[in-house]
Design a protein around this nucleic acid. Structure first.
Length: 312
DNA sequence: AGCGGTCAAGTTGAT
DNA sequence: ATCAACTTGACCGCT
């Protein structure tokens, strides 16, 4: 039982481990397409099974080390939706075992109060004016939603997408395209403020009208501010959630003065952690290159801060 | 066995 | 017009 289960705050690890020997495998489409179809399915089967087992190890590590949430990499089933190399799990030689292993991950997560989350990458753009881009995005979201159901993940988090010179119209397209998602994808979808186009205040109307929760990234908010303070954005974001809110924290690699402030540091500077988050019942995903080491350090530093406060 | 170039996909803005 | 940035590291074919 991890420390944050006793406190209200839950810290989350993103995708990878720095020191712990838990590894997820992947491959490339190019190498897959060089193989015959049976060879290809055999190779994919081995990778997917290895990844299902690695996910179980990852969850066990989190459970034993006070990490309350784990973000699953989009490549957990590599090339799943690729037009040529794509496949369905039931066509893989070890398909049933793969699915059973993922379902066991879900069981383990639920039993131990662990949260799991997906974050599709930059190619998933639900508000693109290009039909083919939206098609691909929907396919990708549906794939991740299937795995999400197996492992009991409750969040599939994406950004608002491009601005295309007209943000309101672009957000309207986002809303419209939501209707193309299945229930299991739609109910898990969340939207996160980014550091270039959509600030929290831009997204709130979308969240209000569609019921899609806002993942508040305070680093992005500092890079792309709006009329809201951090405290205000925190409060607004909380009201969009019908379950435990999910926020993001990171620190700039080269300080707040430099010109590329959006690049992530190895660790979190505890000074960047909003004071108003301390007593909330939320998940905070730690986006830092030092991965589980950064989560551990942040947890210790927050704990030390809180002890000081209560000593006074 | 070790090395380094390459990896499906979108969008923006710096150069 | 090109390219890096975005969770980045891992794979793969060559020697």
């Amino acid at each position: 039982m991890g420390i944050q289960h006793r406190n209200s705050l839950r810290l989350g690890l993103c995708c990878l481990f720095a020191a712990e020997p838990v590894r997820f495998r992947t491959t490339t489409v190019t190498s897959l397409l060089r193989l015959t179809k049976p060879e290809r399915l055999q190779k994919l089967s081995a990778i997917c099974l290895a990844n299902a087992n690695a996910l179980m190890e990852a969850l066990q590590f989190c459970n034993h080390n006070g990490i309350g949430s784990f973000r699953v990499n989009s490549q957990i089933l590599p090339a799943k939706t690729h037009p040529q190399a794509g496949y369905s799990i039931s066509n893989l030689p070890d398909g049933s075992l793969i699915e059973a292993t993922f379902r066991a991950c879900g069981q383990y997560a639920s039993e131990n109060g662990l949260r799991t989350v997906f974050h599709p990458d930059q190619f998933v753009v639900l508000n693109s004016p290009r039909e083919d881009v939206v098609d691909n995005s929907v396919n990708e979201l549906e794939y991740q939603a299937e795995v999400a159901e197996w492992i009991h993940a409750d969040v599939i988090n994406i950004h608002g997408g491009g601005g295309y010179g007209n943000k309101p119209e672009s957000l309207a397209r986002f809303s419209r395209n939501l209707e193309r998602l299945s229930d299991r994808a739609r109910t898990r979808l969340t939207v996160e403020n980014d550091d270039r186009i959509f600030a929290p205040a831009d997204l709130l109307p979308l969240c209000r009208s569609t019921g899609v929760p806002l993942v508040y990234d305070v680093h992005h908010h500092r890079c792309l501010p709006d009329e809201w303070s951090i405290e205000e954005a925190t409060q607004m974001a909380q009201t969009t959630w019908n379950r435990e809110p999910l926020f993001h924290i990171s620190s700039p690699a080269n300080g707040w003065q430099g010109n590329n402030r959006s690049k992530h540091h190895e660790y979190i500077d505890v000074a960047d952690f909003p004071g108003c988050w301390s007593d909330l019942k939320i998940t905070v995903e730690v986006e830092a290159k030092a991965k589980e080491l950064a989560v551990a350090r942040l947890r210790d530093e927050l704990f030390a801060l809180n002890s000081q406060v209560s000593d006074n």
